[in-house]
């Protein structure tokens, strides 16, 4: 191997003690003892602890699954990583930004945009959040390229057409706005947009939820193919264990804002240790 880094040091994204709470906190919940919380909120002041000191590494080329019930903090992680939410505390390092030496929350708005446009791509559950519905599909993909400094229409159009072809959008519909597309097509345009700048890290938030089964299969196939073709690391949030089992190498199980179990996906599916994980796995139809 040409990579001289020690095993375990080949991370592309490192999350260290990420916390996010909504509310003012009180004396009761400021105490370090997490047992005062009722599920993930403080019974006295109502402060919600969406994330409590979450740490994990994402390695090069791997797909890391994040599972858990609604409100467990899965999407909050992705929202913080993509700057849609400001975390209350914690650090995140990205290998492709200043060699992973700088906490990405410590930098200015302009550099945050740089990270969003060059290092990360995100696919939202609802395409409304990831696309400009009234702009053409080509322009949607060009948006990220423009933001990254490209000023040549011909180049951007070629790149956008390539990507849209890759996600099976017919050529004659590329100039159409995603508002006219079906949910599955919108999701595929969103994936193409997220890939436009070859980001080393892709964030996928419930990408197949709400799609019918045959379309789900197409989107999952696409993700597998992208992973093979581009060697992108992915964080895959889903409450659908079947999706995670199919795509993820490793899996994190979340409950009430904390990680309760982590390990190889097969291990977690076959031999769950934590009571909640057992419940989750056995409820799989």
């Amino acid at each position: 191997m040409s990579d001289a880094r020690a095993p375990g040091e080949d991370w592309v994204l490192r999350t260290n003690k990420l916390s996010k709470q909504f509310g003012d906190r009180c004396d009761l919940c400021r105490s370090v003892d997490p047992s005062v919380l009722e599920r993930n909120f403080c019974p006295k002041c109502g402060t919600v602890y969406a994330l409590r000191s979450v740490s994990f590494d994402l390695y090069r080329g791997e797909v890391l699954g994040i599972v858990g019930e609604s409100g467990s903090g899965k999407s909050t992680i992705l929202n913080c990583l993509y700057y849609d939410l400001e975390p209350t505390s914690g650090e995140v390092f990205v290998r492709d930004f200043e060699e992973g030496q700088t906490n990405i929350f410590s930098v200015s708005g302009q550099r945050r945009r740089h990270i969003r446009n060059h290092v990360l791509g995100k696919v939202y559950q609802n395409p409304v959040h990831g696309l400009r519905m009234r702009f053409s599909s080509l322009a949607n993909i060009a948006e990220k390229l423009i933001a990254a400094g490209n000023r040549t229409v011909g180049d951007m159009e070629d790149r956008a057409r390539n990507l849209l072809e890759h996600v099976n959008i017919p050529t004659f519909r590329m100039k159409e706005a995603p508002a006219n597309f079906s949910g599955g097509m919108q999701q595929r345009v969103q994936i193409a947009k997220a890939l436009s700048n070859n980001p080393p890290v892709l964030l996928l938030d419930e990408v197949t939820t709400g799609l019918d089964l045959s379309v789900q299969a197409k989107v999952l196939d696409l993700i597998k193919q992208i992973r093979r073709d581009f060697e992108i690391s992915m964080l895959l949030v889903s409450h659908d264990l079947a999706v995670v089992r199919m795509l993820a190498d490793r899996t994190i199980v979340m409950l009430n804002g904390t990680i309760v179990e982590r390990g190889l996906t097969d291990q977690i599916m076959e031999d769950p240790q934590h009571a909640y994980t057992q419940e989750l796995v056995y409820s799989l139809l």
Binding site: Q110, R113, F135, S136, A142, M156
Partner: peptide, 16 residues
């Protein structure tokens, strides 16, 4: 933040 990709995007969309 001098972030003007939106202005260029509007022109790009017209060209498309």
């Amino acid at each position: 933040e001098k972030e003007y990709s939106g202005a260029y995007l509007i022109l790009f969309e017209q060209i498309m």
